[in-house]
């Protein structure tokens, strides 16, 4: 049998379907149905014979969960291995082992870089910027996020399809954990800047008292949250304390 290859058009279709990875996120298999949905066009090409196609899809309906962007790399690498399974060069367990081995570590990497560093950094950037210049800052932050995230999502899909296991050194060279640490520190600083802008805006719009109340809310609020206070109750306390301070001040001055 000649080694089967998945044509570029089909790979493009698979990548598009990777965007729906979490559509049917469920408790038992988590992203299993999404993974099967994404890889199915490639399996249809590699296994024209119905029984083998069904068997291949069955193995990809097993439990799977990863970070949705990093999962694109696993889908690409799974196709890399399925091509070799179809050609009889590897056992059918090879793509499954690939998925099982990489899903945890790549989830950790994706959660640590995209979810808890790049996205909140861009959110803080957009928020602080929007307070100063409005819509352009929002657009810039979203574009920044999407350019970075889409190039990694697509780039790792391709690298894993071509290289299989060799995607790991490619990912290692990106230095994502270190970049994440820097983005987090910068994001925290942006939040501090945003708090300062709110304080100044408050003072400008509602008098110096509003600025002082806002500064207290930021300073004491951070301390409370860092000690484990629950978010929504703390937010209500801050808003109500601001209202109460204004009422108290009003009564004081008018008496």
């Amino acid at each position: 049998m000649s080694p089967a290859r998945v044509p570029a058009r089909t790979l493009a279709r698979v990548f598009w379907r990777c965007l729906f990875l979490q559509a049917a996120w469920n408790r038992r298999g988590m992203q299993n149905l999404g993974f099967a949905y994404a890889i199915e066009p490639a399996l249809a090409v590699l296994y024209p014979e119905p029984a083998r196609r069904r068997e291949a899809l069955e193995r990809h309906l097993q439990f799977f969960n990863c970070h949705p962007f990093m999962a694109a790399a696993i889908v690409g690498g799974a196709i890399h291995h399925e091509e070799r399974v179809a050609a009889g060069e590897e056992p059918a367990s090879a793509p499954i082992r690939y998925k099982a081995t990489l899903q945890g570590p790549l989830a950790a990497l994706g959660d640590g870089f995209f979810w808890t560093a790049l996205r909140p950094f861009c959110g803080a950037l957009g928020a602080a910027g929007a307070l100063v210049i409005g819509v352009p800052a929002v657009v810039a932050a979203i574009v920044l996020y999407d350019v970075i995230h889409f190039s990694l999502r697509l780039g790792l899909f391709r690298a894993a399809y071509r290289g299989g296991d060799a995607v790991i050194p490619v990912i290692a060279r990106l230095g994502l954990p270190l970049a994440a640490e820097r983005l987090r520190a910068a994001g925290v600083a942006l939040c501090g800047v945003a708090a300062a802008i709110v304080v100044l805006r408050g003072a400008g719009a509602a008098g110096a008292a509003a600025g002082i109340v806002a500064a207290l809310a930021a300073g004491a609020g951070y301390a409370a949250l860092a000690r484990g206070a629950r978010l929504l109750p703390t937010a209500y306390v801050a808003a109500l304390a601001g209202i109460a301070a204004a009422v108290a001040g009003h009564l004081h001055w008018s008496s």
Partner: peptide, 18 residues
């Protein structure tokens, strides 16, 4: 299983902070 897999070792090492 993870201890015996080079791929698992490499992947786990790269996902944690330095």
């Amino acid at each position: 299983e993870a201890a015996s897999s080079g791929l698992a070792r490499a992947a786990m090492t790269l996902c944690v902070p330095p």
